[in-house]
Amino acid sequence: MESPERGQLGTSGSASQADEHMIIKDIPKEEKWLPGNAACPGCGLSLGLRLMAKAIEHPVVVMPASCGSVVQGGWPKSSASFPLLNIAMAAAGSAASGVSEALEALGKKGTVVAWAGDGGTADIGLQALSGAAERGENIIFVMYDNEAYMNTGIQRSSSTPHGAWTTTTPEGKREFKKEVAHIMMAHNLEYMATASVAFPTDFIEKLRKAEAHKGTKFIQLFSPCPPGWRIDYSKSIEVGKLAVQAGVWILYEYENGKVSISPISRPYLDAKKRRPLKDYLSLQGRFANVDEREATEIEKSVVEKWRFLSRFM
């Protein structure tokens, strides 16, 4: 199932818009995220790191405790062919601030990327991130969102969506997903965006845009996780595309107080064009317990999220 907007002819529907956007052939060939890493097969986080290292020429990565810390592999080897500092789980924002200041003081080149999970961003780590953003530290903070604490065995985070099974929500999560992007909007960042590993060119474009801005930049990256979402290894891209087509995951940018829906998500402004929510839910074992009533609740939260964003368009 190939969605037209992901084809090799650009990310957007109209020819003139397509010209302005990156196409798959423009993705750099160089691989700085090396094979033989320790990620599960089909890991969205692993693809995210690979694409990040293509988008940014000299990334200097700061990574709090997460699956990211593990997938780089064991001493004395690392799959990261770029500098990477492993740091305590709460400290991504503050450690990245320090690295950024140090690079500047030493006159060394490098783009500081804090690469944190949803737990290390939405829960443990929110304070350090908020502090960095308020000070306007020159960093790109990427929250790779696999919607649970995967590294420690799939516990719920505040970014786990409603209805999802985790080992600590055996009957499905009662609460709704915390919208970290909305919290970051309140920090008046120069640049903020959402992205998905299922749309590589869109993610790379956004990273490059972020790199061109000064101050703190934030990108929330949708990163499917086969064991945590109870999907087949081969389905992580498919489920990422479905999330966008169903309108559950909205690709957008926030600059100068304005939201602009990214070309890939633009058709789904019209609720009638969205794929049925059940197509998205039924592909994933983690939503197996979601009944009719709960599906309606989730549907309502999707509508509400679009309505919230439309206030800033």
């Binding site: 090396l34 033989g36 890493n37 780089q72 592999g73 080897k77 690392s78 799959s79 990261a80």
Partner: peptide, 9 residues
Amino acid sequence: SLPDFGSGG
């Protein structure tokens, strides 16, 4: 650690 192939085996 230093960058190399097969960090996970």
